[in-house]
Design a protein around this nucleic acid. Structure first.
Lengths: 214, 214
DNA sequence: GAATTAATTGAACGTTTGTTTTATTATGCA
DNA sequence: TGCATAATAAAACAAACGTTCAATTAATTC
């Protein structure tokens, strides 16, 4: 056999990306063999090499597109106002929404950095640093304006990002909490953490659903 | 050749554990081959099987001892007082100190759970849940006593743990901040996050060193 | 409808993997 | 001193790995 009926390069490539992200999230990059990935797509292993020259290329592509997507989402969501609180709220909302929606590629981007070559690792880290810099700027502006009370801007930014990204570890859509509820709670935790005078705005909507579990 | 001069089972086993934790933290469990681990210890691969029947046994041992150590450290550090704030402070201090001190095995315990068999995964998760339950109890007590203001106890506990454990991602001993400074800052962030009326206690000591970086 | 291009298969390559087996030597004890 | 055993080396195993190549067929183009 050779080319199969109905085969389409674009569809196959998309299926490969999706299956790869899912397998890497579930079992890890090293544990995902090209044969198993191919089986998931419904294709022979050799066919994968039409789309990605090496396994590492595939990983890098997933990571690069994840970071590009995250940056692009923030470019769109970023408010024009100078108000630090509104900007921080937008950052938190965008970060959580994006990571929940793409939790498979988030897993890859956060856990598999060590499998990249030096050059590619540097490129991904550069993108990540640029994204995190936006948060530090917001925190710094807020601290200087006196609306936040922050001891260490860099450290607070790291703490916030780890707290927010950690959502993907335990959050499963359709369980106890909705995305909106989780986001609202994280928003008010964030605001308290940075010492904002006014709490998160949607807090009232959530109170009815919260405190159900000990 | 066979047995080498000065060879000692206990020393070798300890060296294997340490080297394994370090290699897994740096390259991941799947990427660590038994031959490379053996080379790191200065021994042939076959010698490892005197101490650990399989590679997965080695991983499980590292994880189990990590969790046992964490639990034991908390048993010792846990204060007798009922005051939720003092208990939360002790929890934060213990968690951060332990994870910074053992950041190699922390990496293994957090990132390599998927490489465990079902049974062993369950055992590790049971230990972890028991440890996290302590934090939820503190938060609940504080919320009920009115000294904390918390929307969702379970969600706040997860957020705090991810924030604290995340320290190992960026913290390197001997760089900008000392362990004491990092702990103090995280303590006051924690207290603000849970809505404690009084801030963390050591805050004043740190102010001089903080805010050096944008 | 013939020629060309795109998509895929199936088999094979050399490496590396975790693990086992057998032989050999150092060490601790009688 | 001699004996038991603890600790290791060296070689080998089958299985799985990422990757390549030639052959083959579906889709597209002219």
């Amino acid at each position: 056999m050779a080319r199969t009926t109905g085969s389409d390069g674009e569809k196959t490539e998309a299926a490969v990306r999706e299956a790869a992200a899912s397998l890497i999230a579930r079992y890890g990059y090293e544990a995902m063999s090209m044969r198993r990935l191919a089986a998931e797509v419904g294709v022979q292993a050799a066919a994968l090499y039409r789309y990605f020259p090496t396994k590492e290329d595939l990983l890098f592509t997933l990571m690069r597109e994840h970071m590009e997507g995250l940056t692009a989402a923030w470019e769109t969501a970023r408010p024009t106002t100078a108000d630090p609180e509104a900007r921080l709220a937008a950052y938190v909302r965008n970060h959580i929404a994006f990571h929940i929606e793409r939790r498979h590629s988030t897993h890859a981007s956060n856990m598999e950095l060590r499998s990249l070559s030096h050059d590619r690792l540097t490129r991904i880290l550069r993108m990540r640093t640029a994204y995190e810099k936006e948060l530090r700027a917001i925190l710094r502006d807020g601290a200087e304006a006196g609306v936040f009370s922050i001891e260490d801007t860099g450290l607070t930014a790291m703490a916030l990002i780890q707290m927010m990204t950690g959502v993907i570890v335990w959050f499963r859509p359709g369980e106890r909490l909705s995305v909106a509820e989780v986001t609202a709670t994280y928003l008010s935790m964030t605001m308290r953490l940075v010492g904002a005078k006014i709490d998160g705005t949607e807090e009232r909507h959530v109170h009815a659903h919260a405190q159900l579990r000990a």
